[in-house]
Simulated assay, not measured.
Amino acid sequence: MSAREQKQQQIIQVTHQILVRDGMGKLSMRRVAGDANMSLSNLQYYYKDLDTLLIAVIIDYFAWYTNEVAENLTKTLENQSNFESFLRAILNDHLVPGGKTERCSMFREIWSLATRNPTIESTVKEHYKSYVQQTVQLISQFTPKPDATAAILLPYVEGYSIMGDSLTLNKSEVIDLLVKFVINLK
């Protein structure tokens, strides 16, 4: 990695930390520059404005997240003997109620930004298109309905972090219900 790429990665990490810890309301170019121990003009050499920086952070985060999910799915596929056990393992890992993880906090910030910024919204949509295609490809070896399976599970997993604590079923019961539904897709 070149010195420029290292500096860009440092800036991205600092921005990510501010977003997760303090939210968008506390993020500014001046704050990032200060936390990264650099001048504002030096930061602007790498990222001309906050939108450019945010898009770089989001792209970096989604690349990390996509790789993380792909690795988890692949490991789970290798360790499970059938589609049902695979589904149970993945849902158990990915259903996180209450957004109590850094991953959930970052997604909430990204979605909040996407509601106010069309460029970020477009970046988010492109990520999800790619993410869905990747998931469909990975699970296609187990189910004749990979598109339908992804269409049911992916939005549910995303939304569970927001309202999972409010459901009348516990996590185990939700997993049982989702597995039964997916297994019986016609």
Rank of each mutant, 00 (worst) to 15 (best):
N37W: 04
N67L: 08
T149M: 08
I152T: 12
Q6P: 03
E109I: 00
L178E: 06
R31A: 14
V32K: 08
I120P: 05
L53I: 03
V136Y: 05
C104I: 02
Y160G: 05
S81F: 01
L153F: 04
E78F: 04
I18R: 01
D176R: 00
R88M: 09
L54D: 00
P118C: 05
V20K: 00
Q10I: 14
C104Q: 15
F107M: 15
D176F: 03
S39L: 10
Y65C: 01
K180C: 09
W64D: 08
L178I: 07
A63F: 06
Y46Q: 07
K26R: 13
P97Y: 09
V124T: 03
K145W: 11
D147E: 15
H16G: 03
T135N: 10
T15F: 05
S28A: 03
N170Y: 01
I152Q: 01
T149F: 07
A70Y: 05
Y160D: 08
A148E: 15
S112G: 14
L113Y: 02
L154C: 00
G25W: 00
A56E: 13
I90Q: 11
P155T: 02
E126G: 04
V32E: 02
S122A: 13
V96P: 05
T143G: 05
G23I: 09
K75C: 07
D93W: 09
G34P: 00
A33K: 03
N170L: 02
M38D: 11
A33D: 09
G164R: 05
S172M: 01
I90H: 01
L177W: 06
R31H: 01
I58D: 02
T52R: 07
N42G: 08
T168S: 13
L113R: 04
V14P: 10
R31I: 14
Q6S: 14
A36I: 11
A3Q: 12
Q141K: 14
T52C: 08
T115L: 13
L95H: 07
S28M: 02
T119Y: 14
I58G: 03
Q80D: 00
A33W: 05
N79P: 00
F142R: 15
M29K: 04
P118L: 08
V182L: 10
V132A: 09
S172Q: 11
Y46N: 10
P144G: 05
R103E: 15
